[in-house]
Amino acid sequence: MESATVGEDILQFVTFNLNNEEYAVDILSVQEINRITEITKVPNSEHYVEGVVNLRGKVIPIINLRKKFGFEEKDRDDSSRIIIMEIQNITNGLVVDSVSEVLRIPASIIEPTPPMSADQNSQFIRGIAKLDGRLIILLDIDKLIGKEVEA
């Protein structure tokens, strides 16, 4: 899912907030961003699977990123959103606290994931971008959801 082509090192990301931190996902894998609609719980599913929603006639699974990352749960509010992404040909939704903007980030300022010992969430991180004093965590969506598909 690399969006960068040779010779052009500006990457575009959709950024969102989760637990007061800023995350970003590759814009090419984002299909749309929706307000949270009614979510139906899936019986006997993994704890981080929030449920399924009806996306124009298609039933798609919704993953709660807070639960997936082991953060404390937060009630949904007006700014909560579902980011609909197509990952490995499967459409998934990610519940996030709020969606901020589309950022153009030069590949040069992306730093590899610092070794964060014992933090298993670091495997989902593709890199960290420093932009105007902000730290933005770039997620590796394939690993995040791919693992989910295997499970």
Binding site: V42, N44, G57
Partner: peptide, 18 residues
């Protein structure tokens, strides 16, 4: 409707409907 991306092997669910 089929369920993609959810492991239904243990959930006793065949599919979903709207």
């Amino acid at each position: 409707k089929t369920l993609d991306g959810i492991d239904t092997s243990t959930s006793f669910v065949l599919g979903a409907t709207i």
